[in-house]
């Protein structure tokens, strides 16, 4: 576990609607199952490219995106499958994209690291660390200039905090009071390098004060805590009091990218975080409700499994691009 301690605002479970909770469960489970399938397909050798997966970090994506409206936007990174699913991209359009198919969300030209869908409120993933942070500020500037009530949630990892783009983007969002929710998924590692080797003050939410806005550290593996923190922050942004920096403490259970066996993570650390799994914790929480039983969760699980395996079957047969598509869509 991290030495940091998240803010302590206990979510009040009783306030939640049963169907809403089951929908959250379906979403967080969908991301886990999707990532498991992708890993299998990759190891099986049928899927091209490389992958950066988010096993263990599912609660951050679902908690934040659930606090957004459909016409709000997100920016994501090379580790974006969870964000995309949580923002409403379908497993089908994403798996097709992972197979490089013409029917993928980017017609096979983006791949794992650049998934997006403008209609669903997600620009293509930005695979340059921190590259999406100034973009998010600019998207929010557009919303502010046009006087819409939209907000941007900008996902990035702890590694991005060392980049100049982080500083420049947060500063501009601050001076113009832009409606951006900066979401730092602090999973303790930038690729293989642990945060305490590259950062003196590892409480990332402290950075917000330096720019003159509010920052908050939240238990990123507590789905409802993430959701409530994001909802508060989104509300502030919509009211013209943005930006806000949320630091979500979480852990990557899988390698940085393909074939990374994570030998740089200590056994003790892994054990501690594996027993702090966001999905298992949410299940335990749900089962304390008198109106939710294991059979309800089983039903959700069956639906999710069906949705993912159906998408996999179709993606395996999805049409590949024609080679003359190579020259299309360079210019608008």
């Amino acid at each position: 576990m991290s030495a940091q301690s998240p803010g302590s605002r206990e979510p009040q479970l009783a306030n939640y609607d049963r169907d809403f909770l089951l929908k959250l469960y379906a979403q967080i489970l969908l991301i886990r199952r999707f990532e498991e399938q992708v890993k299998f397909l990759f190891l099986e050798g049928t899927m091209p490219g490389t992958i950066h997966q988010c096993h263990g970090q599912e609660a951050t994506a679902v908690g934040v995106c659930t606090a957004l409206n459909k016409d709000d936007f997100i920016t994501s990174t090379f580790r974006g499958h969870g964000h995309a699913l949580a923002k409403g991209l379908t497993p089908r359009e994403m798996l097709d994209e992972l197979f490089g198919a013409a029917t993928g969300c980017c017609k096979g030209k983006g791949g794992s690291m650049h998934m997006g869908n403008m209609e669903k409120g997600m620009i293509p993933g930005i695979a340059i660390v921190a590259g999406g942070i100034p973009l998010a500020a600019g998207m929010a500037l557009a919303f502010k200039m046009r006087k819409t009530s939209q907000v941007v949630a900008c996902f990035f990892g702890d590694g991005a905090v060392a980049e100049g783009a982080f500083h420049e983007g947060l500063n501009m969002a601050a001076i113009w009071n832009l409606p951006v929710l900066f979401v730092c998924e602090n999973n303790l590692y930038g690729a293989s390098t642990r945060i305490d080797k590259v950062m003196k003050n590892i409480k990332i939410s402290d950075r917000a004060a330096g720019y003159g806005f509010r920052g908050e550290t939240v238990d990123g593996n507590d789905l409802l805590a993430v959701y409530e923190a994001a909802r508060r922050a989104v509300g502030e942004c919509r009211a013209g009091h943005g930006p806000v920096l949320l630091e979500l403490l979480t852990y990557r259970r899988t390698g940085h990218s393909r074939r990374d066996a994570c030998h740089y993570q200590s056994r003790d650390e892994r054990d501690a975080w594996f027993s702090n799994d966001p999905i298992e914790r949410f299940v335990q929480t749900l089962l304390t409700r008198s109106d939710i039983a294991q059979i309800d969760l089983d039903r959700v699980e069956a639906q999710v499994d069906h949705e993912v395996s159906d998408a996999v079957q179709q993606a395996r047969r999805a049409p590949q691009p024609a080679t003359n598509d190579l020259l299309r869509d360079v210019y608008a």
Partner: peptide, 9 residues
């Protein structure tokens, strides 16, 4: 951005 989004943006 235009190319890698498949013409979406």
């Amino acid at each position: 951005m235009r190319y890698m989004s498949g013409g979406d943006c």
